[in-house]
Computed example of a mutant assay.
Amino acid sequence: MNTQYIAGMQTTEISHPQPVSVSDTKVWLEMCSWTVRAGFPSPAADHTRKRLDLNELLIRNKEATFIFRVKGDSMNGIGIYEGDELLVDRSIEAKHGNIVLAVLNDEYTVKRLHRRGGVVKLIAENPLFPPIVVKDGEELVIWGVVTRNLHKLY
């Protein structure tokens, strides 16, 4: 069991729900050596390619990285939608402004961490959801920091 201290409050890690671990199998894709413009197309490009392992590109610490599927729309304002898969790294120390997977009173949620002047808030990125101010006596665990959002486009 892991104990963390957030804004002077002792928190204890809980063990549910279970995340999906990242596989050891390399996932190789061809990567083009040029960048793709999101504005006007480039008239010419070098077609040199190299092989890229998605694990190396997406994951900083394999042993501490897990995938969670999003439910709800409180983070739509920054492009995190219901059904997206989030890569969450438990080895990164959460800082003010990070998007985190938090456990507040045994409830999992994804929010932006606000930590200033002894006040801790979990901020939604959707104006329909008010900030959650963590009060004394409430149990808050920052389970991990969200490092990537895997958003399906089709």
Results as ranks from 00 to 15, higher is better:
R60F: 00
S33D: 12
A7N: 05
V145L: 09
I59E: 03
I132A: 12
T25Y: 02
S15K: 15
H114F: 11
L153I: 14
C32K: 15
L122E: 10
I92H: 01
D46C: 07
Q18G: 01
V70D: 07
H47V: 08
V134E: 01
A38E: 14
L29A: 14
E82P: 15
S15E: 13
V100G: 01
K62W: 00
N98V: 06
K50I: 05
T147H: 01
Y81V: 07
V103K: 14
I67N: 02
G72R: 02
V27C: 10
Y81P: 04
F40L: 15
D84C: 00
V70A: 09
L101D: 07
V20T: 14
V20N: 09
Y108A: 14
D106T: 05
I132D: 08
G117Q: 15
M31T: 06
H96K: 07
I99E: 04
K121S: 06
D136Q: 13
N126Q: 08
D73S: 15
P19D: 04
M9P: 00
H96D: 13
P127E: 05
T12R: 14
D106P: 01
I67G: 02
D106R: 07
L54F: 06
V88K: 06
T3A: 07
G97K: 03
F40V: 15
T109Y: 01
K111M: 05
D24E: 11
N76A: 08
G118Q: 07
G72V: 04
I78K: 12
